[in-house]
Design a binder for these strands. Sequence first.
DNA 1: TAGATTGTTAATCGATTAACAATC
DNA 2: TAGATTGTTAATCGATTAACAATC
Lengths: 234, 234
Amino acid sequence: MEKKEISKAVITRLPRYYRYLGELLESGVERISSNELSKRMKVTASQIRQDLNNFGGFGQQGYGYNVKYLHTEIGKILGIDRQHHLIIIGAGNLGQALANYTNFEKRGFIIKGMFDINPRLIGLVVRGIEIRGVDDLEQFIKDNDVQMAALTIPKTKAPEIADRLVNAGVKAIWNFAHVDLNVPDDVVVENVHLSESLMRLSYRVCSMQEQKEKEKEKERERAAKAKAKAAKKS
Amino acid sequence: MEKKEISKAVITRLPRYYRYLGELLESGVERISSNELSKRMKVTASQIRQDLNNFGGFGQQGYGYNVKYLHTEIGKILGIDRQHHLIIIGAGNLGQALANYTNFEKRGFIIKGMFDINPRLIGLVVRGIEIRGVDDLEQFIKDNDVQMAALTIPKTKAPEIADRLVNAGVKAIWNFAHVDLNVPDDVVVENVHLSESLMRLSYRVCSMQEQKEKEKEKERERAAKAKAKAAKKS
DNA sequence: TAGATTGTTAATCGATTAACAATC
DNA sequence: TAGATTGTTAATCGATTAACAATC
């Protein structure tokens, strides 16, 4: 009876499928097999089929998947066929970058308002959205039926603001602050910790370098051995 | 002989350990057990110990881990004890947001330059860094020993610029463009696909809602049953 | 020494890949 | 019908958790 839980790994891959299908759609491709898609996306065809079949059978044996249909269906699964009312807390560069990203509106994320505590920013208009102070935050959330909030403020202020958001009825927080937020079970948080992402990059570039050095070392050893051997012979 | 490959999952968690240890350090905590840390971070103690032991034994039986020492060691593993020369391609809001993030410099990521194609931005100065045109990109990379590049440009331009970066010797790309880049094996790419992150949030908030509705439905059914029963009795 | 806690091996769990019958 | 490709079951692989001997 119980529908089995969808794993986090699957959800992570879903938007990527959506992106590739969107590109195929734009370039006029009508149908695609899991095999062909797997080559483009560099994942296994098996994984694609398994992932999709978590949500239902979208394909047809002997034919493959209809690109337009699958694209639409994944859109529905991701909930981007609906409208989401979003506010941005923190109108600095990052907040403004999000506000200026027009694709969000295209996918149903409607930026209802922007907020900041910096009095110099309050009153400014970004993409037609006035920056407000946080005093009327709760009222604004209720008046505009706000469901989601992007948090682009320093980590020191984030937990307090998050509490206020949750109390005012926000159900989803897109968290760019470098803290882990404590929220009730029915509120979802998606973290974008940029500094952690940069550290992962750092790790990977360093370990790549180490690997290369090791290979060079081996190469040198081999060369030395060969040389010694040649010297012996002569 | 071969050192076994560190899994991606471990590397993802490493910066989070680093962050928590940094906070502990700041609040003057000298030592911590895997058990205590597990409670704070909401992961299992077993996982913490397993993760760390991929890189060596940093603890001491009966004592736990020295916070300062472990913090330093993880920093070394992540390669943030060294300096990384970084450039930012794309001086829009997102690029400027990265440039303004002072913590990066603190962790050894030194922003050597910013680039853009928009002539109106070229010549502007952000945090003491002049925005340049992309014409002298290759020369700049060589002159300044640039190892990493953040790509905060539209997806249409990204692949071409990525090729130029790689050819000029850049070894790591922090990719904010909504495309998957094709690079040689010895170049690492860390993707930050914000729109995909937002879709994941959307999925999760929608499935949370569905779950709640199902529960309500069940509740209603139960109430109806109870009512019917009561009616029968009377 | 006794207590605490690690490092590490073994057991479990979950996710990915392979295989193939079902079917368009 | 024959060929292609899905949906799904089974096999494999890897990651997480549990358990405990080693040891500070």
